[in-house]
Design a protein around this nucleic acid. Structure first.
Lengths: 209, 209
DNA sequence: GTCCATATCCCCCATTTGGGGGATTTTTTA
DNA sequence: TAAAAAATCCCCCAAATGGGGGATATGGAC
């Protein structure tokens, strides 16, 4: 496909960023659409059937990674580039394991974005040149350590909201001891031993804003 | 001044955002310059003497707020709009107390940015319509509440580093009970009652990255 | 010279955390 | 289908937190 005939959907909740990128790309491609929310994203994909999706990780209502997983299942022909400020091997690995076509850092210049889009539209893969180099062994450990389960994420969410284990137990309608178990497993997986560290990691990971 | 004859400097370390906004604004103004670093910013202002600065808070090497303070002293004619993702009354108050011309949220649409720029260039002030409404009394309380003493800041620093009250006591060579006192006073002043809240506030305040 | 904030220290006590053992059932995946 | 992972719950215990009540000394503000 001639890349200039391609259509692109931008999913990013920072409107200003979204608008600015849209304005920048518009002269170069057939159509540019925008969405600002994880749930809307899925509808927008159905409605517009874009060739390529620029997907942020921090999306309200539905996380970018989760969204990518769903889209990869439902719309395998759609090409997806994650666009995020997080240069973190965990996200990169996730992107690769889901089979996404690209991963781009928000602190790269716009030509890198445009290169990436063109590469992906031509059937290639594009992973940001700035991404951390890493050896596979430590990477595996790292990824393994960060494979948090759904419930563990629920618990983290509660903890980050300042809730105690007991409050979280109530919220999730499970026993206090269960929350403690999840909590122990989370700390084990992340290699930490206090709530402060969890919060720091969470912010680095972009799990919270 | 006719706004289309104005020159603008964009200071934001997210290159992609910076580039995209630059591309978007370029057709509308005389010159658009870009900088990606807090220290470079000060030189760029000298070199280009822009009419207006779009300033992010999260800048490497020199915090946006600090930069604004310096620039307001050295280059009072320069108009400054803070552009940030943080909708936090503390930052807004800071912006107002420094006497900045505007405060804009990154999740506002691009027309809001353009409106804001035009308003400020015409001599006005522009504070994002989405900013939290707050009455002055609570705002005063808020600011007053943030008058933390030297020792309280020391304790916060330790807490944010993941230390326990006891470790902090050792570090500062004071009694454990003293640290607890400071801690109680900090929580009282900030109107919080848990470490998680302290960390959240601290990050919003930019006390930590 | 009095007041107030700061900094230091003390006691008490309930709640919460963090870490060590488990066990069982359900779900996912290879 | 068999193995692995996830989700549920239980016990114990030391350490730390959060909140309540103090006291005393110092130094600046008014």
């Amino acid at each position: 496909m001639t890349t200039s005939l391609a259509s692109i959907l931008i999913a990013d909740d920072h409107r200003l960023f979204n608008d600015a990128v849209a304005t920048m790309l518009r002269p170069m491609f057939k159509s540019i659409w925008q969405t600002f929310d994880g749930r809307d994203l899925l509808y927008a994909i159905q409605t517009h059937s874009p060739d390529l999706l620029l997907l942020d990780i921090n999306l309200p209502n539905l996380n970018g990674i989760e969204a990518a997983r769903i889209l990869r299942r439902n719309t395998p022909s759609l090409k997806i580039i994650l666009v995020t400020m997080y240069n973190h091997s965990h996200f990169v690995s996730e992107a690769k394991s889901i089979g996404l076509e690209g991963y781009l850092l928000k602190d790269s210049p716009s030509d890198v974005l445009i290169d990436g889009i063109k590469t992906v539209l031509s059937g290639g893969y594009f992973f940001d040149p700035k991404l951390q180099k890493q050896n596979n062994s430590t990477d595996d450990d790292f990824v393994k350590g960060f494979l948090l389960s759904r419930r563990e994420k629920d618990v983290i969410k509660g903890l980050l909201a300042g809730k105690t284990s007991e409050q979280i137990a109530n919220d999730l309608s499970i026993a206090y001891e269960t929350v403690k178990s999840h909590r122990k497993n989370i700390y084990l997986k992340l290699g930490i031993n206090s709530l402060v560290e969890l919060i720091h990691i969470s912010r680095e990971q972009g799990w919270i804003n």
